[in-house]
Design a protein around this nucleic acid. Structure first.
Length: 416
RNA sequence: GUGGGCGUAGCCGAGCGGUUAAGGCACCAGGUUGUGGCCCUGGAGACCGAGGGUUCGAAUCCCUCCGUCCACCCCA
């Protein structure tokens, strides 16, 4: 038997209410903030990500789906959304538009990772990008929008964490200080941290190992090393967030896994700590466009995982709107089969949703079906109705019946 | 990529060396030859994740693989 590939899932009809709820909320939010949708290809030249996201990041070095196409080009299923959006910005000369360019996407993302709860190989992200403006008021707008999304969805108990990791000028100074601090402690920290010291020193800060905690607590923090170019906008951002009444926690240990982040970084996590808990995250990427071959252009955005949102909606038992049931279920006896099919067709042309029974079932069975579908009304056509050109219209919630001329059914229901 | 738990019908789940492999939900039919939701009766549905091995005998024990879950790595 064929099964969906490891780490992928089918989103079944009964789950669509949650998906619809999230995508409709996302669309409303974007309209509210003036972000327009952009759709980019599901695959890109692999080099876009190796250069943009960073060759040594896990996402690129061990999680990317890379393949060669028949023309010999090396392509990759996108492992994140920002690089593609920036590529499109450059390719289509969007610097010529009014800045910043505000776009959003809702798209599948692919990472060859070991699946577990809240982590799949194909998953969906909603993300926004504001490209072409470095003013911290845009940082505030993006952070606010991210926070607001969860509010609109009805999620509670979330924490917004904020930090600044500096720019290409001040960050090396910080990393040097961090390395120096750790240089005489390498015998005391865990194995992973010794690796991190070499490969990705910022990651030292969010090690979960018990033995490393005391060292993390006393480690130098990024905020103390920011140059004025970074600290001033960060202070401004904090002021804006206060003015917007967005509750945030300053987390000096917050770092991000992608190379392109600069200055503002933030993350939203549910209260209950779990393995794969981060629900959304973002930050500024002021060097990315230039790295990708564009003129120097600042940008900021965030992305959030739809599956993780839905996981939390379900955990918190947030009620989501159900799919509308058919207004009418058309049940019939064999001799009225054509009349029933015709009636269903006429109702639909009048904008009334109708599902017809299929032939060969008892009326009782058809009624059970109508009930299972949650139909508001059942129109029954038997011999008597056929002869008098009427239908027996039954209201399912209270069982009342009324005989109505076939031609009047649509207008009768339209007035309900 | 590392370590561990688990895989019995569509779903939940008992059985843990010899059973016709429980039970519940869902599904289908009937109890009402023109009527749903409750109830009752019946039916269908499982090569017990796959492959190999041990044994007279394996869903039950062992190995490999696959899947899933948890933790780590990392991340949405």
């Amino acid at each position: 038997m064929f099964k969906a590939p490891r780490g992928t899932v089918d989103i079944l009809p009964e789950e669509q209410a949650h998906w619809r709820y999230v995508s409709q909320t996302v669309e409303r939010l974007c309209r509210l903030y003036g972000y327009e949708r952009i759709d980019t290809p599901i695959f890109e030249e692999a080099a876009l990500f190796t250069r943009g996201v960073g060759e040594v990041t896990d996402i690129v070095s061990k999680e990317m789906y890379v393949f060669e196409d028949r023309g010999g080009g090396v392509l990759a299923l996108r492992p994140e959304g920002t690089a593609s959006a920036c590529r499109a910005y450059i390719q289509h000369g969007m610097h010529a538009r009014s800045q910043p360019v505000r776009v959003y996407y809702l798209e599948p993302i692919f990472r060859y990772d070991r699946p577990q709860a809240g982590r799949q190989r194909q998953f969906w992200q909603f993300g926004v990008e504001a490209i072409g403006e470095s003013d911290p008021s845009i940082d505030a707008e993006v952070v606010e929008m991210c926070w607001r999304l969860y509010e609109e969805l009805g999620l509670t108990g979330l924490t917004l964490q904020l930090n600044s990791i500096g720019c290409p000028i001040c960050r090396p100074r910080y990393i040097e200080a961090l390395r120096e601090y750790y240089s005489d402690k390498l015998d005391l920290v865990c194995r992973d941290c010794r690796d991190r010291f070499e490969k990705n020193p910022l990651r030292l800060l969010d090690c979960k190992n018990e033995q490393c905690q005391p060292f993390i607590a006393k480690a130098p923090i990024t905020l103390d090393y920011l140059g004025v170019e970074c600290s001033e906008p960060f202070e401004a951002l904090r002021g804006y967030l206060k003015a917007l009444s967005i509750p945030y926690e300053l987390n000096p240990r917050l770092v991000r896994g992608l190379d392109y982040y600069t200055k503002t970084v933030f993350e939203v996590v549910p209260q209950e700590e779990g393995g794969q808990s981060t629900i959304g995250a973002g930050g500024r990427y002021d060097s990315l466009i230039e790295v990708l071959g564009g003129r120097p252009t600042p940008g900021i955005g965030f992305a959030t995982g739809i599956e993780r949102i839905i996981l939390n909606l379900k955990r918190q038992e947030v009620a989501v709107p159900e799919a509308a049931p058919p207004q009418v279920f058309v049940a019939f006896q064999e001799e009225a089969r054509e009349a029933a099919i015709a009636l269903a067709g006429r109702l639909r042309r009048s904008g009334i949703s109708a599902t017809a029974a299929t032939a060969g079932r008892s009326l009782r069975s058809q009624m059970r079906q109508a009930d299972a579908l949650g139909a508001l009304y059942t129109a029954i056509i038997g011999r008597e109705e056929l002869n008098s050109d009427t239908v027996m219209l039954k209201r399912m919630n209270d069982g009342t019946e009324e005989r109505i001329a076939s031609n009047d059914v649509a207008s009768f229901l339209a007035n309900r």
